[in-house]
Design a binder for these strands. Structure first.
Length: 498
RNA sequence: GGGCCGUUAGCUCAGUCGGUAGAGCACCUGACUUUUAAUCAGGGUGUCGCAGGUUCGAUUCCUGCACGGCCUACCA
């Protein structure tokens, strides 16, 4: 700490020295003519004789390296686009201005004006005729060679990670392009993007512990949404036949390499479609996004290479579970028999879990870790899926699939249940099992049935296919990152006082 | 919630079989007109995560705590 204080003190002294010479270290603006990248490209074109040699360029950026050599000096200047080397000479700048360089540090932001040339070693460099301090930095940057390694600091001070580690910024640029490509794909197909409330009096559409908040003026408890589903379906009722939303949802559950309390979800609804159509849609979308962003449908993920080119493997949930665990859950039609079977196999089974949750446990224990290549698990038991329509030929099952890639659930889709009476009944059953499942204390008030949603269904929702995609996980797959924190700029960490 | 591991200078890391620490980068002083991990000569700047315990003495051993990582659990 003392070292840091000392460095800050030294920099404050430099700051005062600059002020003493009538230089404002934090001016309001600087009008650059080019970015670093543009400048380098321009010079190549100049050398090729395509454009005339310009008189003067103005660049601005952060100093990332300083090499003094007596009467000359080389700095590296970095902006959002790239890096350009700067050349300063006492001869050109004059004694007074050249001496000012001594009060600059790595990390300071400056504007420079000058002309480009190639050094002896061939690097395109700006011969600086004048420079302007744009921001004096008071803290030393992480070391240039190793960058910032400390994972906790990388997440808590992402700005330092972005400055110090070259690979961080491109990753988040890639994330941005992935989201754009998703949007493009859907918009091209006639889907309309909408925004629905984050603050909800009934947080439905999924079963997860909610974040609670309070609106003062209304004097009403509200919850952060845990899914986009119920509001988007209201819009389908209202005539948005093809609609989607990309938005943050919030789940008050554990944090892990695959879970962040707030994460980005895409939900798509298409009237007159069913889950098979959604399968084709997500297959096409992921493939399109991969080609548009990483330029390939093959991607390295840990020790595996994932091949995203369609068609993807489709296997029924029942077969997958049977294959991996040896249990055919159709043979155990009620909770007790299934639980006994699982206990027989030496699994520790939570006695409050209903049959749907037991099946879910079989999936996550036996099946999910093996689904590295894109795989659709198809046809789920009705107990696990209160918002999905029953299969045409098997009323115990629903038309639903989950998409797994890299051992993670990446998407979930179903043929939406649009029978308002059955929907009410399913909610009611869900509420029963849930209260008996002894949820956590703050959740004992359990899920209230969303009456307004049911009312909407009573007006009539066309047959509809719905799809949800975990955008963060999709980014993980496409960028080959095994922790969700690597693809979220500011992942949730515990507050640390210091 | 449980298990394992980590926390030493601004950054990246050594180290002390228990005698209060050291290297590179960064930083400070000086030299240097084509450097680019510049080089050369000097300079060590630290609550060794926090709190207890054992001990003549703890950064080191023990216990607890905090934060983080991985695993596990939880998780429609």
């Amino acid at each position: 700490m003392a070292r840091l204080e000392q460095i800050t003190r030294q920099r404050l002294e430099k700051l005062e020295r600059l002020r003493g010479r009538g230089i404002e270290p934090y001016p309001h603006s600087y009008h650059r003519t080019h970015t670093c990248e543009e400048a380098l490209k321009l010079f190549q074109r100049m050398e090729a004789g395509e454009v005339p040699t310009p008189q003067e360029l103005r660049l601005a950026g952060r100093i990332t390296s300083i090499r003094f050599m007596g009467k000359i000096a080389f700095f590296d200047l970095r902006d959002g686009s790239g890096k350009v080397q700067l050349f300063f000479s006492r001869e050109r700048l004059g004694d007074g201005k050249y001496e000012l360089l001594r009060d600059l540090d790595i990390g300071d932001i400056i504007g420079v004006a000058g002309s480009l040339f190639r050094t002896k070693t061939g690097e395109v460099t700006l011969d600086v005729a004048d420079f302007t301090v744009l921001c004096k930095s008071l803290k030393p940057l992480p070391e240039k060679w190793h960058g910032l390694v400390d994972v906790e600091k990388r997440y808590r001070r992402r700005y330092l990670d972005l400055i110090a580690n070259e690979e961080t910024k491109p990753l988040f640029v890639a994330r941005s392009r992935i989201v754009s490509a998703v949007r493009e794909f859907l918009v091209q197909r006639g889907f309309i993007e909408v925004e629905t409330p984050v603050l909800q009096s009934v947080a439905g559409g999924a079963l997860a512990r909610r974040f609670k908040t309070h609106h003062e003026a209304l004097d009403e408890d509200l919850y952060l949404r845990i899914a986009l589903e119920l509001h988007l379906k209201r819009l389908v009722v209202g005539g948005f036949d093809k609609v989607f939303e990309i938005g943050r949802v919030f789940r008050n559950e554990g944090i892990s390499t695959k879970h962040n309390p707030e994460f980005t979800m895409l939900e798509v609804y298409e009237a007159y479609a069913d889950y098979s159509d959604m399968m084709g849609l997500v297959e096409g979308m992921v493939c399109y996004v991969a080609r548009e962003t990483i330029g390939s449908t093959r991607v390295k993920f840990g020790n595996d290479t994932i091949d995203l080119s369609p068609p993807w493997r489709r296997v029924t949930l029942r077969e997958a579970v049977k294959e991996r665990s040896g249990i055919d859950f159709e043979d155990y039609p009620d909770v007790d028999s299934l639980r006994h079977k699982m206990e027989e196999m030496g699994m520790e089974v939570d006695p409050t879990k209903d049959r749907g949750r037991l099946v879910d446990e079989l999936i996550s224990t036996f099946v999910e870790p093996h689904l590295i290549q894109p795989t659709f698990l198809v046809d789920y038991p009705v107990e696990m899926s209160p918002l999905a329509k029953r299969k045409r030929d098997n009323p115990g099952m629903v038309e639903r699939f989950e998409l797994f890639i890299g051992g993670m659930e990446v998407a979930n889709a179903f043929t939406e249940l649009n029978d308002p009476l059955e929907q009410r009944e399913r909610f009611r059953k869900q509420q029963e099992t849930q209260t008996s499942a002894a949820r956590s204390v703050e959740d004992t008030e359990a899920e209230v049935i969303d009456e307004d949603f049911l009312l909407a269904l009573e007006y009539g929702m066309p047959p509809t296919g719905g799809l949800g995609v975990g955008i963060d996980r999709l980014v993980m797959v496409l960028c080959g990152k095994q922790s969700i924190r690597e693809v979220i700029l500011f992942p949730q960490l515990k507050t640390k006082g210091d």
